[in-house]
Design a binder for these strands. Structure first.
Lengths: 126, 126
DNA sequence: GTATGGTGTATAGTAACAACGTACAATTCA
DNA sequence: TGAATTGTACGTTGTTACTATACACCATAC
C-alpha cells in the first residue's frame, strides 16, 4: 500500500487517504476481494491516529467500495462506486478544468494532461 | 452574477462561491477590470453572511484573480491565476477522473464529458 | 470452550475552522 | 464636509478533524 499524505494539501487527512485508496481500486492495484491493511498498520505507516484511517475506510464503505467486518478486516467490495448524480460527477471535473484554464494552459495541453491521467487510471481495467 | 450555493455540496460556502467566480472568469463572463458585486449584495442574494462572501473574495485575491480596495469594491485583476505546481494542477484532475472511472463510465464517455465541460469553459477565450 | 492476539468501534477531549452578528475603517460623491 | 457605500476586524457559536484511550468483535491455537 503505497499511500502518502500531502501536507500542502488542504483536504483532511482521511479524505486524502480515501482518495488514494480509490485511485488504487480504479487502477486495479487493489482488486475486488483484496484485503486492506489493518487500520493500526496503515495509521502508523502514515504517522496518524488509527481513527483517522478508520474514518477513511468507513467513507469508502459508504460509497460501496469496501466491506468492513468488525474483528476481521476490510476488503475491496466492488470496483464500482454507488451511483452518483451526473452533477456530482461533473462538478469536480469542472473545478479541475477551471484550474487548468486559469493556469493558462492551452486546450491541447489540457487534453494531453487528461489523457495521460486517464491512461494511468485505466491501465488495469478489464 | 448568477451564482448558486449547493446545499448537498460538502465544501464550505466560501469555497463554492470562490469556485463559481473562478468559472465565470475562466469563461470570460467576468472580464478583466470588471466590477464585482458588493459583498453585502452578493451575500444577501445568496442568503449568507457578508463575511462569508468577503472570505471568498480574499481567497481569489490571494490567487491573483481579484483586486480588492477597501471602500471601493473588488474588480477582476487578471484572467490568469498565479502559477501552481504541476502536481497541484494534476491532483484535482486525477480525483475527478477517478470518480468517473469508479462510476463505471467507459473511456469514450469520460472523454465526451471532458470535452463538453472544456468547450463551455473556453467559450469566451480569445 | 476458552484464552489470546489481532481487528474494527465507540467515546471523550482539544484545536482549528466555518459562518454569523455587530462594530469599525476606507472610499466615493453630492 | 457629511452621508452613503464599500471592505475589514472582532467576538461568538456550532461543527469538524484529529487524537488518546478504552471497548467489542473475530479467528485461531490449545
Amino acid at each position: 500500500m503505497f499511500i502518502t499524505i500531502d501536507e500542502a494539501d488542504a483536504r483532511p487527512i482521511y479524505v486524502q487517504v480515501a482518495e488514494e485508496i480509490k485511485a488504487l481500486i480504479a487502477r486495479g492495484e487493489l482488486a475486488q476481494g483484496a484485503q486492506l491493511p489493518p487500520v493500526r498498520q496503515l495509521a502508523s505507516d502514515l504517522g496518524v491516529n488509527l481513527n483517522t484511517v478508520a474514518t477513511a475506510y468507513r467513507e469508502l464503505q459508504g460509497e460501496g467500495l469496501l466491506s468492513i467486518r468488525h474483528g476481521a478486516g476490510a476488503v475491496v467490495a466492488s470496483r464500482t462506486a454507488q451511483a452518483k448524480s451526473e452533477e456530482e460527477l461533473r462538478k469536480p471535473l469542472r473545478v479541475a478544468l477551471t484550474g487548468l484554464v486559469l493556469a493558462g494552459l492551452p486546450r491541447v495541453e489540457i487534453m494531453n494532461l487528461v489523457q495521460s491521467e486517464l491512461r494511468a487510471l485505466l491501465k488495469g481495467a478489464k
